[in-house]
């Protein structure tokens, strides 16, 4: 098994946290995993992206040449990365702010209005966790329990409220995707 995913969006949307939380839960599940963020000048002007590779054996390159998944939190991300996604790959779109669709017809698209769902939950900042709920449901790379545990570890237990909001956000995204 080898799964690669790219998470991309504006700085401030918590895109890197999406990647680190997934990587952490993959580690806790006993997989080999690499996480690679875009860095330096690429971040000026306010974009962010990262790549996570998860596998049963040693991972050669942390660069996702042909990711199985693209999780696009804004339109520029969709345009930058859609050509890179593997044949018949899967794209998750933050449909709260992306009205465009991929130009490739072989891709399966899941539109998740994670911004709106987060707003309904009273905290727009958890849109990324809503999206992770949808992603984990569909990809099944790690179990929801394992993911939530990692999320809590990464966010630290500073505020008790945060864990609760994250749980709700994750559940909302998870349930949004119907099997």
């Amino acid at each position: 098994m080898m799964t690669k995913a790219i998470f991309s969006g504006f700085g401030g949307q918590g895109v890197l946290m999406m990647g680190t939380s997934l990587a952490h839960s993959a580690m806790s599940s006993g997989y080999h995993v690499t996480y690679l963020p875009a860095y330096g000048a690429e971040m000026r002007g306010g974009t962010a992206n990262c790549t996570v590779a998860i596998g049963n054996e040693e991972i050669a390159s942390p660069v996702a040449s042909e990711p199985d998944y693209l999780i696009a939190m804004n339109s520029p991300s969709l345009f930058s990365f859609q050509t890179k996604v593997a044949a018949r790959g899967i794209v998750f779109l933050n449909s709260s702010i992306i009205s465009d669709r991929p130009s490739r017809s072989d891709l399966t698209v899941y539109s998740v209005p994670c911004g709106d769902i987060a707003q309904d939950l009273g905290n727009t900042r958890v849109a990324n966790v809503v999206m992770m709920g949808a992603f984990i449901k569909k990809s099944g790379v790690v179990t929801p329990e394992m993911y939530l545990k990692s999320l809590e570890t990464i966010m630290g237990s500073r505020k008790k409220g945060v864990a609760e909001v994250n749980r709700k956000a994750f559940a909302a995204g998870f349930d949004y995707i119907k099997d």
Binding site: T20, H32, V33, T34, Y35
Partner: peptide, 10 residues
């Protein structure tokens, strides 16, 4: 190199 510096692994 920059990749080793930036990447995360367990």
């Amino acid at each position: 190199d920059g990749m080793m510096g930036q990447m995360m692994e367990p």
